[in-house]
Design a protein around this nucleic acid. Structure first.
Length: 552
RNA sequence: GCCCUGGUAGCUCAACUGGAUAGAGCAGAUCCGUCCUAAGGAUAAGGUUGGAGGUUCAACUCCUCUCUGGGGCGCCA
């Protein structure tokens, strides 16, 4: 929160200064961390931006702005320095850091939440992710989407958004018929009939399991709704696997509820959505099909909504689905898709605009599919081949914590190579342990402290004067900056980097500064610092869905 | 052919969306053990950011061309 505070005060000064120089446009300057060889807390580039516009010497401009900073921000700024091409480097007062530390200690797990500042109704956000077809267990690629989506939801929720997580269930359409037929064939085989496997059918072991269950229940073939039974079992598996992965959903939205269920006039929501578009002029009929005029909103081609044979396309369902999302009051939609769906972004963005919302109301986050490797050999992941690596297998092998952390280590649109052997080998040296180890060490100190019975309540935080302590407090405060960054990029992966950096800072502090020492007052202050570290580490790991064990 | 994505240290990836000397983790080198957990710390080493131009005070970041990995390309989902 320190950085936001600086930015706020600074923008007033910068804007006024720019105004005095005759500039009318606002200056979008940045406040960032200086390189580590420079001893300052923040670097500001505003002077260079202004100097360019008014054709002045940036260092002179920096000098003048710097004077204003010292005049108006002397309460929180210790000193400023002009460096490089015209950077203003700011060192904040220690008191500001101590105050922030106090804030962490009092707000605890609410630290970084915006909700209590504003207090008003917060924006309703929906994060839709995984949404894998219920035709088989989740594979490792779905796991990546699950980890990213779930963590993003946690981050946004922590910030103060009203977040709902949803799974869109494609439970109608052709692949459902194939699934039902696959199970049926298995069922008949188990009943002793000699017949071949369904060509292009689903062949995994789970199909046999479903068929076995149905046989065991003793119903006759005509009594069984194979589609319903298959979906029921598969969904149970998916839900359990996600549960073991620490992921849960607020809602499972059935495509059938908008594409198959009819109202009293005999219309589905998809029918109505298409009529809506037709009436609005965003859809038209041609060549016997119904088309979406998506080129009007930036797509490179118009798309078919309803085929000439009268069946709707997947897109029609999706239009209705997104319409439904907005009707439920969500004002910001986040969709997590595998990168193979990227061709779909333009048309669904067009839909959003046709529905009367700005294109910013929808954020489609693409994540690259995971390429799976075992002993250096690529592993095929088709759910139809019958041999694929499931999410469950990987979670069982490397553990939930390592698996989630691993998935969130990289930016979503960067390709991820997941070597199973490597992941297994890393089980004791994985970066996740480095971060968790911080919490274990902190807890150990707390235990020791309690056993010595020397806990004192009135700690004087201003005793925390070493370089290591100062760095540590600064990193703790950067928790808020990381939240904002994730919010801006709509990606939670920055938290893994943040936590590793924090862990690094902590372990250095641990080496240099003994907490439980002879100086009782200093120990008390450092114990408070430890308490704050535990709060932040636990919160941070929690946002990633990773546990923070007290002992390791 | 067209459209998305990526190419950064030996390996896997970051880099606060245009900032200063491009950073982490593994792997490899050398040190640190009376003491709160060594699953740790310190010090080196490792780079023409695929390549070539351009814009800018400043380019991994933006533009053009080019090489290369992955993906997608009107009535499949």
């Amino acid at each position: 929160m320190i950085k936001q505070q600086i930015i706020e005060k600074l923008s007033g000064i910068v804007e006024r200064y720019a105004g005095e120089k005759g500039l009318t446009e606002s200056i979008s300057f940045s406040v960032e961390n200086p390189p580590k060889n420079i001893e300052a807390d923040f670097a500001v580039n505003a002077a260079m931006l202004i100097a360019k516009k008014i054709k002045a010497n940036p260092r002179v401009v920096a000098q003048e702005i710097s004077a204003e900073i010292m005049k108006e921000m002397s309460g929180i700024v210790e000193k400023t320095e002009i460096a490089g091409a015209g950077f203003i480097n700011i060192t904040v007062k220690n008191e500001l850091l101590f105050k922030e530390l106090g804030k962490i200690l009092s707000l605890k797990d609410k630290y970084g939440s915006r909700a209590q500042n504003t207090g008003n109704a917060c924006e309703k956000v929906m994060v839709e992710f995984v949404s894998a077809n219920p035709t088989g267990p989740l594979h490792i690629g779905h796991g990546r989407g699950a980890a990213i989506g779930d963590s993003l939801a946690r981050v946004l929720k922590h910030i103060g958004y009203d977040v709902k997580k949803e799974y869109y269930l494609n439970d109608v359409g052709n692949q459902m018929l194939v699934l039902a037929e696959s199970v049926k064939v298995r069922f008949r085989q188990l009943k002793g009939e000699e017949l071949p496997f369904l060509e292009d059918g689903y062949k995994g072991e789970y199909i046999v399991d479903i068929a076995k269950r149905l046989v065991a229940e003793g119903k006759s073939i005509n009594e069984i709704d194979f589609k319903r039974e298959a979906v029921k079992d598969i969904l149970k598996t998916i839900e359990d696997d996600l549960g073991d992965f620490g992921v849960s959903f607020d809602n499972w939205f059935s495509e059938g509820s908008i594409a198959a269920d009819k109202d009293k006039d005999g219309k589905t929501e998809v029918d109505k959505a298409c009529e809506f578009l037709l009436k609005k002029g965003d859809a038209y009929e041609s060549e016997g099909a119904l088309w979406l005029a998506s080129t009007k909103y930036g797509d490179d081609k118009d798309r078919v909504l309803k085929r000439s044979d009268g069946r709707y396309t997947y897109l029609a369902s999706d239009v209705a689905y997104h319409k439904n999302k907005f009707e439920r009051g969500f004002t910001k939609l986040v969709n997590l898709w595998g990168a193979d769906h990227h061709g779909y972004v333009a048309r669904i963005t067009a839909c959003v605009q046709m529905l009367g919302f700005s294109k910013e109301a929808l954020k489609v986050l693409l994540y690259q599919l995971v390429s799976l490797v075992r002993n250096g050999q690529p592993v095929a992941m088709s759910t139809r081949s019958g041999e694929f690596i499931t999410l469950k297998e990987v979670v069982d092998e490397v553990g939930k914590d390592a698996c989630r952390f691993f998935f969130l280590l990289r930016a979503p649109d960067s390709q991820l190579e997941f070597d199973l052997e490597l992941a297994k080998k890393q089980s004791s040296e994985n970066p996740v342990f480095y971060v968790q180890y911080v919490n274990a060490r902190c807890n150990s100190i707390m235990r020791e402290s309690r056993s010595r019975n020397d806990l004192s309540e009135n700690a004087d935080l201003s005793l925390l004067n070493t370089k290591e302590e100062r760095e540590l407090i600064k990193h703790l405060a950067a928790f808020c900056d990381t939240l904002s960054l994730c919010e801006k990029t709509m990606s939670p992966h920055h938290f893994t980097a943040y936590l590793m950096e924090l862990a690094d800072t902590y372990h250095r502090f641990y080496e240099k500064c003994r907490v439980l020492g002879d100086d009782a007052a200093l120990s008390a202050a450092r114990l408070k610092l430890i308490e704050a570290v535990m709060i932040i580490i636990k919160n941070g790991l929690g946002l990633l869905g990773v546990s923070a064990p007290e002992k390791m």
